[in-house]
Design a protein around this nucleic acid. Structure first.
Lengths: 156, 156
DNA sequence: ATCCTTGCAAAAAATTTGCAGTTAG
DNA sequence: CTAACTGCAAATTTTTTGCAAGGAT
């Protein structure tokens, strides 16, 4: 939870921006966490060690990093965005009922990344694939309004 | 463009919910639009023909539909979520600088969908793949590495 | 009638921003 | 030094909610 290797941070630091203690602390925290944190969670954690870092600074920093592709942003509708320090490929399934969020290993998403880049001419920094659906537990326990809704359109 | 074929709406309508004029109008509007609209945009459009439908109702309805997989929700961090009536596969690229959002045709995402389902045991209703990066125009106009100022970049 | 649904408006949540003081380079 | 950055707090933006009235079955 303390500082990671400063060199590590420095090498990924976007050029043209000052490497302030706040920014280092924030990036460091996100990387330590390993998972996907909301801005609020990040703020909480940051405050444990750096109570003086303000909310505004955290948001500004998060946006700056996300725009530069240093971190990824996984926004959810119901909740706050989640930020992830691992920009390597890793996708998620998200249960629309209980909100569970877990990782999945989807090789073909990597391909998709490439195709999207080719097709759009974008310089793609990361892709966010969030598979939304109903997890096994929820399916078992409630069966979503008692029956199969017209899911036909959804599946391929 | 007022109502689409009522039968069309009816067949996708989640069971256990009343098919009220408001809900029909909202789903209809989303489908007419064809694109990805924010809640605010949907509310605007809805109000043109149904000024009395309230904001709360639109959000409640949007959430209900999204939870049932009737529409998809594509949340963005900086901005509002966008809702899409087309639950079939279609992915997007999103420019983190100018905010442009356009469709891409990514066959392998279909595969990913399947893999994610297998791996997680989820019943996946839809997947949201948003490729974030920098569009060709933005790359050309600011060159993103070297002298960009970032913080003042256009927001949508 | 009964219960789902709506409209309204206030509230909560999430994120952004102006400004004056601070600091990295 | 000096432009970039921060903290603070107020302002926005986005979304949710409580409640009484309305409407479908």
């Amino acid at each position: 939870m303390t500082n990671a290797d400063p060199t590590e941070i420095a090498k990924d630091f976007p050029e043209g921006f000052r490497m302030t203690p706040q920014r280092v602390a924030i990036l460091d925290e996100i990387r330590q966490a390993g998972g996907h944190l909301t801005a609020a969670e990040i703020i909480d954690r940051i405050h444990e060690q750096h109570p003086s870092i303000s909310v505004g600074t955290v948001y500004r920093t998060l946006n700056m990093f996300a725009e530069r592709g240093v971190i990824l942003e996984f926004p959810f509708g119901n909740q706050a965005s989640r930020f992830d320090g691992r920009t390597e490929r890793h996708d998620h399934v998200h249960c629309t009922i209980c909100g569970e969020l877990r990782d999945v290993e989807v090789p073909s998403a990597l391909l998709a990344h490439q195709v999207a880049e080719d097709q759009s001419g974008y310089e793609i920094q990361g892709h966010q694939t969030i598979f939304s659906g109903i997890c096994p537990k929820c399916r078992r326990s409630q069966g979503v309004s008692g029956d199969e809704k017209g899911a036909s359109a959804t599946r391929d």
